[in-house]
Deep mutational scan, measured.
Amino acid sequence: VTVHVNRYTYHFDNPEEAEKFAREMAKRLNMTVEIHGNTLKVE
Rank of each mutant, 00 (worst) to 15 (best):
N38M: 06
V5P: 02
M25A: 06
V42S: 04
D13Y: 07
H36K: 10
F12W: 02
N30S: 07
E16Y: 12
A22S: 02
H36R: 11
M25K: 02
K20W: 09
V33D: 01
E34P: 01
Y8F: 12
F12Q: 00
A22Y: 02
E34L: 14
T39R: 08
H11F: 13
K27P: 01
P15D: 05
R28K: 12
P15A: 13
V33W: 05
H36S: 11
H4N: 05
N38V: 04
E17N: 06
I35C: 13
V5S: 02
K41E: 06
P15I: 15
F21W: 07
K20G: 05
T9F: 09
L29R: 03
H11K: 06
E24T: 09
K27L: 13
T39K: 08
Y8M: 13
P15F: 15
R23N: 09
E34Y: 14
Y10K: 03
V1T: 09
A22D: 00
N6H: 13
G37W: 04
H36L: 11
Y8L: 13
F12K: 00
K27Y: 09
M31I: 06
V42A: 03
V42Q: 03
T39S: 11
I35D: 03
K41M: 13
V5D: 02
N6F: 14
P15T: 10
F12C: 05
H36N: 12
K41P: 04
N38D: 09
E43W: 13
V33Y: 05
P15R: 15
G37T: 05
Y10A: 01
V3E: 01
T9I: 14
T39P: 03
I35N: 05
H11I: 10
T32G: 05
K27R: 13
V5Q: 02
T2W: 13
V3Y: 00
V5A: 03
A18Q: 00
E24I: 11
E19D: 07
H36G: 04
F12P: 00
K41N: 10
M25L: 13
E19V: 11
V33E: 01
D13T: 12
T2A: 06
M31E: 02
E17A: 11
N38H: 07
H36Y: 12
T2L: 09
A26C: 07
M31V: 09
F21E: 00
N30P: 01
T9K: 10
E17K: 08
Y10S: 01
V3A: 02
R28S: 06
A26K: 03
E16H: 10
T39I: 14
V42F: 03
Y8W: 12
M25R: 02
H36M: 11
E34F: 14
V3D: 01
M31Q: 04
F12G: 00
E17H: 07
R23L: 09
H4L: 13
V42M: 04
G37Q: 06
A22V: 03
G37F: 06
R28A: 10
I35L: 06
R7M: 11
I35R: 14
N30A: 05
A18M: 01
N14K: 07
A18S: 01
R23H: 10
M31D: 02
K41T: 14
V33H: 01
E16M: 11
H11E: 05
V33S: 02
F21T: 00
L29T: 04
G37Y: 10
A18L: 02
R23T: 07
A18T: 00
T9V: 14
V42R: 02
M31Y: 06
N14S: 12
V5M: 06
I35E: 04
F21Y: 03
L40C: 06
P15W: 15
G37R: 04
R7Q: 13
H4M: 13
K41R: 14
N38W: 03
